[in-house]
């Protein structure tokens, strides 16, 4: 059974009004358990919209979404997914531990259970010594790691990420990508990852979903086979470059790269 199943999904903003915008047209996608899938495309292609529809933060205009075998709304109510954004979105008035515990508080977990879990998550993201720090005392990369720990705190089967490393510098970014892969390998979490960086998508994913400019549709799905990725040499292997070329060509074919070339980075 697939973790996320999207069929014939369309989203029109401000339907019937003068400022009507078609964001997504007839998108179908199935993501298997344990898979890492990236959504890539130019700015405004609807990749973030697709992620928010899966998260039930937006309602689709038409089409069906099934997440973890339930309707998108039910799986949001059951907290079946964790979410991380470009901004870490940590709460300044809560310590690192208390930030990680927030989703558990809302689930009604008791204090001892919450504390045990937040310790476990801090070990997972390698920040155990920062438990009692406040977010503003951490670097951008560390804040993002706390955000990932928070997203995974309830052990959701699905992780939805919207350009989580977009605001980080290149070195930190590559480091975080490797960390994320090892976390996902350890927890078996399924990931849907929105990015506009081709190498990032290729490095992280089993499949890269290439989307066209507005209105967004899926133009190609590139399979990446870097079996046993997750080490430093991955980025130097010929398969890595072959996959990058495949994604770039798919983007170009969809009219979103090369000549128009907006919003997709080669780094």
């Amino acid at each position: 059974m697939s973790t996320v199943s999207v069929s014939n999904l369309s989203k029109i903003f401000n339907e019937g009004k003068a400022n009507q915008v078609g964001a997504l047209v007839d998108v179908s996608l199935s993501i298997e358990k344990g898979e890492f899938v990236s959504l890539i495309g130019p700015s405004g292609c609807g990749k973030s919209t697709l992620l928010r529809l899966i998260a039930n933060l937006l309602e689709p205009t038409s089409g069906d979404i099934v997440v973890a075998g339930k309707s998108a709304k039910q799986s949001r109510l059951d907290q079946d997914y964790g979410m991380a954004f470009q901004q870490a979105g940590l709460f300044d008035w809560r310590t690192v531990t208390k930030n990680i515990e927030l989703p558990l508080e809302l689930k009604g977990w008791d204090k001892t259970k919450r504390e045990a879990r937040s310790r476990e998550m801090l070990d997972l993201v390698k920040l155990p010594e920062f438990a009692d720090h406040f977010p503003w005392q951490l670097s951008g990369g560390m804040q993002q790691r706390v955000a990932i720990a928070r997203a995974l705190a309830a052990h959701p089967p699905l992780l939805l990420m919207d350009e989580p490393f977009g605001a980080l510098d290149e070195m930190t970014r590559e480091h975080m990508q490797a960390e994320l892969l090892s976390i996902c390998a350890a927890t078996g979490t399924t990931v849907v990852f929105v990015t506009h960086s081709i190498p990032e998508a290729v490095y992280l994913s089993n499949r890269v979903v290439v989307m066209s400019p507005r209105p967004g549709r899926i133009t190609k799905i590139v399979d990446v086979n870097l079996d046993g990725h997750c080490n430093e040499t991955t980025r130097e292997r010929p398969e890595f470059f072959a996959a990058i070329t495949a994604v770039r060509e798919a983007l170009r074919a969809s009219g979103s790269h090369g000549h128009t070339g907006v919003g997709v980075e080669d780094r």
Binding site: L57, R76, Q79, M83, F85, L102, L106
Partner: peptide, 11 residues
């Protein structure tokens, strides 16, 4: 972002 997060927790 914080409001979206809270909505994702079904708060």
């Amino acid at each position: 972002t914080q409001i979206e997060l809270m909505r994702s927790y079904a708060a």
